[in-house]
Simulated assay, not measured.
Amino acid sequence: MRRGYRSKGQDRGLSSGRRIAGAAVWTIALVLSACSAGSTSKSASQDPPGILQPSQEQQELSGSTGSAGSAGDAGLSGRVQFSTPAKQYRFIVGQSDPASPIPAPAATTDPASPLQAAAPVPAPAPTQTPTSPAASVKSKKPAIPVQRQQEQQAKRKLTLGELRHKYSDIFKVNGQPGVKRIALTFDDGPDQLYTPQILDVLKAHQVKATFFLLGKRAEANPNIVQRIVQEGHVIGNHSYSHPLFTKLSVEEYKQQIDRTSAILQAQIGYTPKLIRPPYGEITEEQLQWTGSNRYVIVNWNIDSLDWKGLSADQVSHNIISHARGGAIVLQHSAGGDKQNLSGTVAALSTVISKIKADGYELVTVPQLLKLSKQM
Rank of each mutant, 00 (worst) to 15 (best):
K140S: 09
P124E: 02
K155L: 15
V137I: 14
P105W: 04
K157Y: 06
R148V: 12
T109A: 13
Q152L: 08
A125T: 02
Q149Y: 03
A104M: 12
S132P: 00
S139D: 14
T109C: 04
V146K: 04
A104G: 09
S132L: 09
K155H: 11
P114W: 06
D110I: 01
R156Q: 15
A125Y: 01
T127D: 02
T108N: 08
P114K: 09
K141E: 05
P114N: 07
A143K: 09
V137W: 06
A106N: 13
Q150L: 12
V121K: 07
V146P: 00
P145W: 05
P122G: 01
P124N: 05
P142G: 01
P122I: 02
P130D: 09
Q150N: 02
P105C: 14
T129C: 10
Q150G: 00
V121G: 01
A118H: 01
A106F: 05
T127W: 04
V121F: 11
P105E: 10
A104P: 13
A104E: 15
A117H: 14
I144M: 14
P122M: 05
P122F: 01
S113H: 02
A112R: 15
K155F: 12
Q150M: 06
Q116K: 15
P105A: 12
Q153A: 10
P142D: 11
A117F: 07
A107P: 07
T108L: 05
P142C: 04
L115E: 12
S132M: 03
A135D: 12
S139H: 13
P105F: 00
A154W: 08
Q153H: 13
T109W: 07
P130E: 08
A118L: 09
P105G: 14
Q149E: 03
A118R: 05
V146Y: 01
A119C: 07
A106C: 08
Q116I: 10
Q149F: 02
A143C: 06
A112F: 10
Q153W: 12
S132A: 15
S132Y: 04
T109P: 03
P126N: 14
Q147N: 07
A143Q: 13
Q147K: 11
Q149N: 04
P120D: 09
R148M: 12
K140F: 09
A104T: 15
V121Q: 10
I144V: 13
T127R: 04
S132G: 13
P126D: 06
S113W: 03
S132E: 09
P133R: 05
T108F: 07
S136T: 08
Q128Y: 07
A135Y: 02
K138R: 15
Q149G: 00
A154L: 08
A135G: 00
A117V: 04
S136R: 07
P145S: 08
P130Q: 04
Q116C: 05
A134Y: 06
K157M: 12
Q153K: 15
Q150P: 01
A104K: 14
S132K: 13
T109F: 08
A154M: 13
Q128V: 07
A104Q: 15
Q147H: 07
A143F: 11
K157V: 14
S132V: 00
P122A: 06
P111T: 06
D110M: 12
A134P: 00
K141Y: 10
K155V: 13
K138Y: 06
P130L: 09
K138T: 11
Q128S: 09
I144N: 02
T129S: 12
V146R: 01
R148F: 08
I144Q: 13
T131N: 03
A112T: 12
A143T: 14
K140C: 03
A117L: 06
